Deep mutational scan, measured.
Amino acid sequence: MAAGGDHGSPDSYRSPLASRYASPEMCFVFSDRYKFRTWRQLWLWLAEAEQTLGLPITDEQIQEMKSNLENIDFKMAAEEEKRLRHDVMAHVHTFGHCCPKAAGIIHLGATSCYVGDNTDLIILRNALDLLLPKLARVISRLADFAKERASLPTLGFTHFQPAQLTTVGKRCCLWIQDLCMDLQNLKRVRDDLRFRGVKGTTGTQASFLQLFEGDDHKVEQLDKMVTEKAGFKRAFIITGQTYTRKVDIEVLSVLASLGASVHKICTDIRLLANLKEMEEPFEKQQIGSSAMPYKRNPMRSERCCSLARHLMTLVMDPLQTASVQWFERTLDDSANRRICLAEAFLTADTILNTLQNISEGLVVYPKVIERRIRQELPFMATENIIMAMVKAGGSRQDCHEKIRVLSQQAASVVKQEGGDNDLIERIQVDAYFSPIHSQLDHLLDPSSFTGRASQQVQRFLEEEVYPLLKPYESVMKVKAELCL
């Protein structure tokens, strides 16, 4: 049975990233139509530049190519590739079939990587351009969430054990800070992308030097003109047959890092959902379990974690691919890159769409948070109580021993009897502590235990987050809708 299948058929496997999760716009960027249309555009740009620099290419040939950029006979191309065992030459023939007058000058002087690699770089750039505003929107939604809850005390956790208090907004800023680093890295790697350009079979530009009869300047002009037509500021000066596969490492490393950030955020949300302090959106008709109707599973956060793990592992592909590119190139890269580049971007696209949807509907339960604080705060307040007693004339050592005994009794009630923490009640009825009984409410005010959390939130948002989001103001209103 021949390899390949009808990918629109229910009898043929289709990647869930495309069929179930990723956005239509990201799927289109990695589609065959987008790819092969870009090949034709690159052939047109090459012909236009070659004509401008004096090669015998007519206006009629150029116009014929322009008129057929979208006229792609995919069936013919597939048949040609089956016959020739070469995808680029299959599309040269297919393009030439609908451009008979231009057929002889299509791909003039070029090698397969002229269309293959340059198209990949265009796709990487455009895919990054799709991700950047999506990530900015996630940051914006979380920034709104953090600002609104900047002063809401909550129990902090280290080692997932109760620690000092923080605020809900401050905790959210930990998430935002990681995503801001990801946004900066995505922008950097996007701006650092260079075009492969017009380089020939081993990167020496020998074929173009021959076409222009040894004119170095025209060869350099050709490279520059096509690079500018493709919208790049610069091209690699040095290439082998391909652009260095280190570029793929750079791009997928940034995406993998984004995956790590999203995994951490969504894990926190899942843990908070278990504590009943916070939940992701839950639709009115949504079913959490087929057997347990009360369940409210954090399905979206779980999906993000599941896909983020996949995204983090994909960076190993370009690392290994770059390491086995012998001399000017081997074909070890080809099949692998067809999979890992598309999957990385479709996965990143999915987790950003999902995280935006989550961040637009996060639900906080202040009463649950308050109750958990009441359970733990008495123990945390013991040092403040000791200091207040010393100020009232008591002995630190005597007070410490009193607190120690009462704390152990209260802990026994919590752990052995399943009761509430009654340390404060014990202190309130103990005559030894009568000098500070009137101060206990103040000493137990949760806001006095959150330090500068709310001020940190305000400063972080104003100095770091809002300036970073400013270039994306025009796209901030787009909502994230999930079908599944």
Rank of each mutant, 00 (worst) to 15 (best):
A2V: 06
G4W: 15
G4D: 15
S9R: 13
S12R: 15
L17V: 15
A18P: 15
A22Y: 10
A22D: 06
E25M: 11
E25G: 13
M26A: 05
F28R: 08
V29E: 00
Y34D: 06
K35C: 12
F36W: 15
R37P: 00
Q41P: 01
L46G: 02
A47Q: 04
E48Q: 09
T52M: 10
L53S: 08
L53R: 00
G54L: 08
P56E: 13
P56V: 13
T58R: 14
E64D: 14
E64C: 12
M65I: 15
K66E: 10
N68K: 10
D73W: 08
K75G: 12
K75P: 08
M76W: 13
M76N: 11
E80D: 14
K82T: 13
K82P: 14
M89G: 05
A90P: 03
V92F: 03
F95D: 00
G96A: 12
H97W: 13
P100N: 09
A103Y: 04
H107Q: 02
G109K: 01
T111A: 00
S112W: 00
G116V: 15
D120Y: 09
L121Q: 12
D129Q: 12
P133K: 15
L135V: 14
R141N: 11
D144V: 15
A146T: 06
K147T: 12
R149N: 11
R149L: 09
A150P: 03
L152W: 08
T154F: 07
G156D: 00
F157S: 08
T158C: 01
F160N: 08
F160K: 06
Q161S: 02
A163E: 04
T166K: 05
T167E: 03
T167N: 03
T167V: 02
T167F: 02
C173F: 02
C173N: 00
L174K: 05
W175V: 04
W175I: 04
Q177I: 14
L179F: 13
M181R: 07
M181W: 09
L183S: 10
L183T: 14
L183F: 08
R188G: 07
R188L: 06
V189D: 07
R194D: 05
R196D: 00
G197Q: 01
K199S: 09
G200P: 02
T201E: 00
G203S: 02
T204A: 09
Q210K: 15
L211G: 03
L211P: 07
F212N: 05
G214R: 11
D216N: 14
H217K: 09
Q221V: 10
L222A: 08
L222K: 04
K224W: 10
M225T: 06
V226T: 10
V226W: 03
K229W: 04
K229D: 03
K229Q: 07
A230F: 04
A230N: 04
G231T: 06
R234F: 08
I237G: 08
I237F: 07
I238T: 07
I238A: 10
Q241R: 02
T242K: 02
R245P: 01
R245T: 01
V247L: 14
V247T: 12
D248S: 01
I249Q: 06
E250R: 11
V251W: 07
V254Y: 10
A260C: 07
S261I: 04
H263T: 14
I265V: 12
I265K: 08
C266R: 02
T267R: 01
L272G: 09
A273G: 15
L275S: 13
E277V: 04
E280C: 05
P281N: 12
F282W: 10
G288N: 02
G288M: 02
S289T: 02
S290K: 03
S290H: 01
A291R: 02
M292S: 04
M292T: 02
Y294T: 03
Y294M: 03
R296A: 07
P298T: 06
P298G: 03
M299D: 04
M299K: 02
C305L: 03
S306W: 02
A308M: 02
A308C: 15
M312N: 02
M312I: 13
T313Q: 10
P318N: 02
L319R: 00
L319C: 00
S323R: 04
V324P: 00
F327S: 07
E328S: 03
R329I: 01
T330Y: 05
L331S: 01
D332E: 01
D333M: 01
A335F: 06
A335Q: 05
A335L: 03
N336H: 03
R337V: 03
R338I: 02
C340G: 09
L341F: 15
E343W: 03
A344T: 06
F345Y: 08
F345H: 08
T347I: 11
A348C: 13
A348G: 13
T354F: 05
I358K: 09
I358W: 04
G361L: 09
V363C: 05
V364I: 10
Y365T: 07
K367S: 11
V368G: 04
I369L: 10
I369Y: 03
E370P: 06
R374A: 08
R374M: 08
M380I: 05
E383K: 01
M389I: 08
K391L: 06
R396I: 05
Q397P: 05
D398I: 08
D398N: 12
H400G: 03
H400K: 02
K402G: 05
I403P: 02
I403K: 03
R404C: 12
V405E: 12
S407L: 03
V413Q: 15
V413W: 13
V413P: 03
V414T: 05
K415S: 06
Q416L: 14
D420F: 05
N421T: 07
D422K: 09
E425Q: 11
D430F: 04
D430Y: 06
Y432S: 11
F433W: 05
S434M: 12
P435A: 10
I436C: 06
S438I: 14
S438N: 10
Q439V: 12
L440Q: 08
S447N: 13
S448W: 11
F449C: 03
R452V: 10
Q456L: 14
Q456I: 08
Q456E: 02
R459P: 06
E462A: 12
E462M: 14
E462Q: 12
E462F: 12
Y466L: 13
K470C: 14
S474L: 15
K479R: 14
E481L: 11
L484E: 14
